[in-house]
Nucleic acid binder design. Sequence first.
DNA 1: CCGTATCCGATCAGATACTG
DNA 2: CAGTATCTGATCGGATACGG
Lengths: 131, 131
Amino acid sequence: MNLGHTKGTDMLESKECPDCKRINEVLTRVGDRWSLLVIISLSEYGTLRFNELKRNLGISQRMLSLTLKKLERDGLVHRTYHPTIPPKVEYKLTQMGKSFREPVSAIGSWALDNLIKIDKAREKYDVTVGS
Amino acid sequence: MNLGHTKGTDMLESKECPDCKRINEVLTRVGDRWSLLVIISLSEYGTLRFNELKRNLGISQRMLSLTLKKLERDGLVHRTYHPTIPPKVEYKLTQMGKSFREPVSAIGSWALDNLIKIDKAREKYDVTVGS
DNA sequence: CCGTATCCGATCAGATACTG
DNA sequence: CAGTATCTGATCGGATACGG
């Protein structure tokens, strides 16, 4: 893949990777664990209520509230408030949120595929270092 | 996409999303910002020395050291020590690290493509809330 | 049901100083 | 050059209590 930076003879002379700075920015915004998990959940189920997400993820009320507000602000999640009694609030992905699904799912799938490998590598490393 | 969990009539009745718990685990390990940026850098340049990474990412010495050790332990990065004077240490992706390249690059590309959109959504949100 | 407010411990992450 | 050690502030994140 190509993230768009300049490759060439000055490859290692650049003071800083410009893309990394920008990627860093975005990761700071939507790259935290809870955001990714909320995105994954919504991409799986389509629409979820506040407490459904809470139960699904095992996230605290506080973190879910903060995460959802942030995702809504960033335009990744749409919030629908139904002023019934008791109130009902539904969350779903926006267009941009949906476009985020693919890369996030790629991470998720890789995660599921490599958890065991990581555990083994870690075990091996610890034995080697411990000797 | 399908992360492998059971879909069906009990979709919303499951107490917790089992995949989310496992994905959460992996994200806890290799999902932090510095790890992702190191992976991206190494996938771009192939092999980098400690200070090259440091300059590229604008990361502090401490965090880079911790991040690299963690990635090496998890089997994603390979470390080669050349006992010269001055010493020279090179880092590159392992096979598993390379397999992580694709999903991580997908995140990176999406990030570069959507930074501006996020900024606009945020601006719009702030105006709406502020009124 | 859907949050917000507060408190508090745990972890993150930079700055600085030091070693082989 | 390639780290480690220590200190310190910032942020994360759970628990609890409360309100619309």
